Computed example of a mutant assay.
Amino acid sequence: MRLATLLTGSAEEAADVVQDVLMRVYRDWHRISAVEYVDAYVSRMVVNRHLSRARSLSRRDRRERLVAVPEAGPSPSHGVAERIAERDELATALASLGRRQRAIVLLRHVDGVSDEEIAASLGCSTVTVRSQASRALAHLRSALAEGSRP
């Protein structure tokens, strides 16, 4: 659910994506259970479903909505207001990325999926994954640095 929320930028859309994927996982469990890394496989299914939905929704000129990113865990060194501000800033920066770049960054850094697996799931080369990840991270660094300036 966290990956889907980060990808979609909306808790409601994330729930729809996860529900679609879980129905497919249930239907095809006999085949999916034989895969070596089931978690990575299901994560790829979430990304692919999101990209498919995003393509159809973008045809209708959908504007991305931002929501608070689900919290990974408490951070004792920061107050609640600071954590919320940081999450909102990160959500805004992630939303400014393209769908493919956002998927690459989240799969690589949140789910720990290898570049080869990302390339296979997105139907592109490993070099493309690495270059898109590099550009996305540069954009995120720039966006977050601008947001931290007074």
Rank of each mutant, 00 (worst) to 15 (best):
residue 23 M to Q: 13
residue 67 V to G: 10
residue 53 R to M: 12
residue 11 A to G: 09
residue 3 L to Y: 04
residue 60 R to P: 00
residue 128 T to E: 10
residue 39 D to I: 04
residue 135 R to C: 01
residue 103 A to K: 08
residue 27 R to A: 12
residue 129 V to G: 07
residue 141 R to M: 13
residue 67 V to M: 05
residue 143 A to Q: 12
residue 31 R to S: 14
residue 57 L to W: 00
residue 144 L to F: 10
residue 77 S to L: 02
residue 98 G to S: 12
residue 61 D to W: 02
residue 21 V to D: 09
residue 41 Y to S: 13
residue 17 V to H: 00
residue 109 H to N: 14
residue 111 D to G: 05
residue 91 A to T: 01
residue 118 I to K: 08
residue 54 A to D: 13
residue 122 L to R: 06
residue 90 L to I: 09
residue 91 A to K: 06
residue 105 V to F: 02
residue 57 L to A: 12
residue 17 V to K: 01
residue 85 A to H: 04
residue 52 S to E: 13
residue 93 A to V: 01
residue 65 R to T: 13
residue 149 R to H: 07
residue 145 A to Q: 11
residue 38 V to I: 15
residue 69 V to R: 10
residue 106 L to K: 06
residue 86 E to M: 11
residue 32 I to T: 13
residue 125 S to E: 06
residue 134 S to D: 14
residue 114 S to L: 09
residue 150 P to D: 07
residue 12 E to T: 15
residue 76 P to K: 00
residue 118 I to S: 07
residue 113 V to T: 15
residue 35 V to S: 10
residue 43 S to N: 15
residue 7 L to N: 07
residue 22 L to Q: 14
residue 124 C to W: 01
residue 38 V to A: 07
residue 149 R to A: 12
residue 76 P to E: 04
residue 65 R to E: 13
residue 44 R to S: 14
residue 33 S to Q: 12
residue 64 E to L: 12
residue 47 V to H: 01
residue 119 A to P: 06
residue 60 R to T: 07
residue 89 E to Y: 01
residue 36 E to K: 10
residue 122 L to I: 06
residue 90 L to D: 02
residue 104 I to V: 14
residue 130 R to V: 12
residue 30 H to Y: 13
residue 99 R to T: 09
residue 126 T to D: 12
residue 125 S to K: 04
residue 76 P to Q: 03
residue 33 S to Y: 03
residue 125 S to R: 09
residue 121 S to V: 08
residue 96 S to W: 05
residue 119 A to T: 08
residue 92 T to W: 01
residue 148 S to H: 11
residue 39 D to H: 06
residue 144 L to I: 12
residue 41 Y to H: 15
residue 48 N to C: 12
residue 60 R to W: 04
residue 29 W to K: 15
residue 65 R to G: 03
residue 34 A to P: 06
residue 92 T to Y: 01
residue 133 A to T: 06
residue 145 A to Y: 03
residue 48 N to D: 13
residue 83 R to C: 03
residue 90 L to F: 03
residue 62 R to N: 03
residue 109 H to T: 13
residue 21 V to H: 05
residue 129 V to W: 04
residue 25 V to N: 14
residue 133 A to I: 06
residue 8 T to V: 06
residue 11 A to R: 13
residue 96 S to Q: 11
residue 106 L to F: 02
residue 127 V to H: 04
residue 22 L to V: 05
residue 69 V to C: 07
residue 71 E to W: 07
residue 5 T to N: 01
residue 22 L to I: 07
residue 70 P to M: 09
residue 102 R to S: 00
residue 40 A to P: 03
residue 75 S to Q: 05
residue 104 I to P: 08
residue 30 H to G: 14
residue 46 V to L: 14
residue 68 A to P: 09
residue 115 D to T: 13
residue 142 S to K: 14
residue 54 A to G: 11
residue 117 E to F: 09
residue 15 A to W: 01
residue 123 G to E: 11
residue 118 I to P: 14
residue 90 L to Q: 04
residue 67 V to A: 14
residue 142 S to R: 15
residue 60 R to L: 13
residue 122 L to S: 08
